[in-house]
Design a protein around this nucleic acid. Sequence first.
DNA 1: TCCTTTCCAGACCGTTCGGTCTGTTTGTAG
DNA 2: CTACAAACAGACCGAACGGTCTGGAAAGGA
Lengths: 200, 200
Amino acid sequence: MPRDGGATRDLLLDVAERLVERNGFAATSVEMILSEAGSSKGAFFHHFSSKRALAHALVERYVAADLGTLAAGLEAASGESDPVAKLLAFLDYFVGRASALTSESACLYIAVLVEQDLLDDVTSAHVERAIIGWREAVAALMREAFAAMPWDRPRPEPEDLADQLFVVIEGAFLMCRAAGSPEPMRAQLLVYRQLVAALL
Amino acid sequence: MPRDGGATRDLLLDVAERLVERNGFAATSVEMILSEAGSSKGAFFHHFSSKRALAHALVERYVAADLGTLAAGLEAASGESDPVAKLLAFLDYFVGRASALTSESACLYIAVLVEQDLLDDVTSAHVERAIIGWREAVAALMREAFAAMPWDRPRPEPEDLADQLFVVIEGAFLMCRAAGSPEPMRAQLLVYRQLVAALL
DNA sequence: TCCTTTCCAGACCGTTCGGTCTGTTTGTAG
DNA sequence: CTACAAACAGACCGAACGGTCTGGAAAGGA
């Protein structure tokens, strides 16, 4: 093999992700990516058969990283043996990392979901995989915490409550955009943590 | 005055809103809007000086409608004299109208916020106005309900808890997109309602 | 009636888009 | 050293983009 194609491919993905998160997919031209990356069309269409193929690769990589931070949160909470403490430690992990989340100005999922054209079999399968990953892991934590803590009033279904975390994170991304500040992410994650804690 | 220009303008806004909510702003061309509306470029650029001016008009109209549904929710809850019942009635109003919210497949705010280029003085001022409108009205309901219902544990700030409603709605819009179903909107609003109710 | 102003249709323009193609460089295997 | 395939650079293409311009139709005031 000649020059290291993997490095160029990664660079193109890095630059593309930044630009797409800032301006959306349709508003980000291939030429902008190339100019920013200091690359050329030859390189781009060598690594990606089309702009849509770039979107597929972009989402696949993003989902992998996203499920990675989920795993990191689970790992951070794994020290706690008490189910309630474990759930709260899990949530605290993301509250603490809120500023790191919003350093990248927005979430790629939003850019993909906002354009129906981009929601083909490939992208929607990837996003669905991410959502289900979060749902199942968080719902399991919820169930254990609930079982350890009887309650007189009815509680939400753990799956729906787990989805609420995903929903709050995505919504908070949008509010950060509107506010022009990363602060709402932390505030909203903290509110979610407090609301969940009130069920325990 | 010649033919009724207002009707054409409204039609263009209606069609544009539908297409932008479906595919985003950048991916929606002026010609697509015209073809869908059965109109022409002459008409379009007579009513809007540029595509950006269309975005401004679109957001302005959407914010007005959005604050209208907020007012409708407040009106629906105004019958209750007890602050707690009033807050819950307010939230129930939106749970009940969840399917109506997601009939329009997505929220225009998302399409605007996802493209940084679109966030100029005009659009960001409109969106901020909407967010503050919801925050202040909902936070007021929260404060009254909290005051009527003492609590031993610390509660979230009413403003942050009010923002959480906006955040959940926007996030739920995205989840509806990912799921290809309007169902998550209702489920997530219900979860939010249950979480708030657990504080009372 | 006629004139004016608004409203609209559609041809047209320069630019930019995603994508193709040709040619050259670069690492590696034999 | 040679051959070959992967990796890239950049000119080029047709289509589509946002926007302009000219001409004509429709309504109201004089």
